[in-house]
């Protein structure tokens, strides 16, 4: 049986997670409100998962990831996805150099620690596939050579919920590769007033680089060590299973609303994201609150709705709410 010294682990996590407060402080200098977005960016960063963002334009999505890159002192690239974008524009290509009379590798914008794939659904499937494959494999093959992507590597892809004409919606299998799907909402009135004030000031605040990419890599290892009890594992499995066979959990009414449930990758992501959340909360163990805190972000893009559900304006969020209100908490 695995023995875990929780006291020691807790102390270690207390020490290692101290930077979370610093990151939050630095982020708050630049980003007003959007606490939920910032928290999920950190979860994705610490759990080594990519994030799909959905929100209206102008909600500080790009600024948030740019600021995070500045704080971590990491390389940041932004790729604006357009219908004429090619896979080579993302991953790179071989260019013939007349000077050396040889083909040389020109690495694409994906070679960065933080990549913002803006409006990912505007590009055709082959470009999306190139990016998603790189996200999964964490390496890119150009010509005969394979190049590892830098660590940490976090892709934040955005989707615009409006203007759906001329878009290429991500297939279910590819959406599943994003650990979290975060829905970004408008700031509150007070926050928006503060945003105006900040922009009217002579100098826009800038976040300082307080971390190195290596710190994040090390923190990820600590996150993996966060203790997860069997009861929590069972709770996660119950939640994920309830999306597949709701009738077994007394949720027969959801049976006709769910076309397909969450995959085993959802269970893995839910466990990892819960650990990262516990780490952010500076705890060495996961409690049911952690699972519930990340449940919506992990599951909302992994549940397929039927036509009946769409006709009745039922969203995946409604389904998740029903599930977490029914599955017994350990």
């Amino acid at each position: 049986m695995e023995t875990v010294n929780i006291k020691e682990l807790n102390e270690r996590i207390q020490k290692e997670s101290a930077f979370v407060d610093i990151i939050s402080m630095e982020m708050n200098k630049v980003i007003v409100g959007q606490k939920h977005l910032v928290e999920n960016l950190l979860i994705g960063l610490l759990a080594d998962g990519h994030i799909l963002l959905e929100g209206m334009p102008g909600l500080a999505k790009t600024l948030a990831i740019n600021t995070l890159a500045n704080i971590v002192d990491a390389k940041f690239n932004r790729i604006q996805f357009t219908p004429d974008l090619l896979p080579a524009d993302v991953i790179g290509t071989m260019i013939y150099s007349q000077k050396s009379e040889q083909f040389q590798v020109k690495q694409g914008p994906i070679f960065a620690n933080f990549v913002l794939a803006d409006e990912i659904n505007r590009s055709p499937a082959k470009v999306q596939s190139a990016l998603l494959e790189a996200m999964q494999e964490r390496q890119v093959t150009i010509g005969d050579n394979t190049y590892k992507l830098p660590k940490p590597f976090l892709v934040m892809a955005t989707q615009n919920p409006v203007e759906q004409e001329g878009t290429y919606p991500l297939p279910e299998a590819q959406v599943d590769r994003f650990m979290l799907k975060v829905v970004v909402s408008y700031p509150k009135k007070e926050e928006e007033k503060l945003i105006i004030k900040m922009h009217n000031a002579r100098e826009f605040p800038k976040a300082s680089a307080v971390l190195k990419p290596e710190d994040i890599v090390r923190a990820r290892e600590v996150v993996k060590d966060v203790y997860m009890d069997e009861k929590i594992e069972k709770y996660i499995v119950d939640i994920v299973y309830a999306t597949r066979t709701p009738e077994e959990y007394g949720l027969g009414k959801l049976k006709d609303l769910i076309q397909y449930g969450a995959s085993p990758r959802a269970s893995i992501s839910l466990a990892m994201a819960s650990k990262a959340y516990a780490f952010i909360k500076r705890r060495g163990y996961v409690i049911p609150e952690d699972v519930r805190a990340v449940c919506y972000e992990v599951l909302r893009h992994r549940i397929g709705l039927t036509y009946e559900a769409e006709a009745e304006n039922i969203t995946t969020e409604n389904i998740i709410t029903d599930i977490i209100n029914t599955v017994e908490v350990p």
Binding site: N10, Y227, D229, I287, P330
Partner: peptide, 9 residues
């Protein structure tokens, strides 16, 4: 109880 149940306390 949470500590005992989930953190081997």
């Amino acid at each position: 109880a949470d500590l005992v149940k989930f953190a081997k306390y």
